[in-house]
């Protein structure tokens, strides 16, 4: 059981998706790795690492019946697991909020990428009302060129009305 696969599963949310999917994997001989599962409005989204001794086709045969029964889109890719490679925790958190409009993510992350940000985790929500939507985003990452470089880069983004905060994350080990 040495091949890792990434399963991407997306569909209309309903109770039991995770239980049915993971039961099929477990009963088929899979070992699960890291996962991100999140409801984005009415849609449930799954990114799931699974270790399986068989082929990608055999893995798909395990989960396809569940996906079809629950009307879920399913995609499977082989990948490297590397689950026990040492990793550094994020050292910076950026929060962004403001009146919603197209281009916030592209402009903010474009400036951050140019200043050396490696994004580890990004989440966003659209809040407010239909008439006055608010965009809220958080990003955790590594500032490979330091946090001041990120501050300098964001000062020139100039998206009117968007508030951006940058906070260092100091992780300890004790």
């Amino acid at each position: 059981m040495n091949q890792w696969y990434m399963l991407t599963v997306v569909g209309r949310d309903r109770p039991g998706i995770v239980a049915q999917l993971t039961s099929a994997l477990y009963e088929g001989g899979c070992n699960l790795g890291e996962a991100s599962m999140l409801r984005l409005r009415r849609n449930f989204t799954i990114l799931l690492m699974a270790q399986f001794s068989g082929s990608m086709e055999a893995l798909e045969a395990l989960v396809r019946p569940v996906a079809d029964a629950l009307a879920l889109c399913l995609h499977i890719e082989p990948l490297e697991g590397d689950l026990h490679e040492p990793r550094d925790p994020p050292d910076v958190r950026i929060t962004v909020h403001g009146a919603d409009r197209a281009g916030i993510v592209a402009r903010v992350t474009g400036a951050l990428a140019a200043a050396g940000l490696d994004i580890l985790d990004l989440g966003s929500d659209v809040a407010g009302s239909e008439q006055q939507p608010i965009y809220v985003m958080y990003i955790d990452g590594y500032a490979t060129q330091g946090i001041e470089a990120l501050r300098t880069a964001l000062a020139t983004v100039g998206v009117e009305g968007i508030v951006v905060h940058i906070e260092p994350i100091q992780t300890f080990s004790c």
């Binding site: 026990h84 040492p86 925790p89 994350i169 992780t171 300890f172 080990s173 004790c174």
Partner: peptide, 13 residues
């Protein structure tokens, strides 16, 4: 909220 690690829980924060 803050991020923590632990010598007794390697490779996790």
């Amino acid at each position: 909220v803050g991020r923590e690690g632990c010598l007794s829980v390697p490779n996790y924060t």
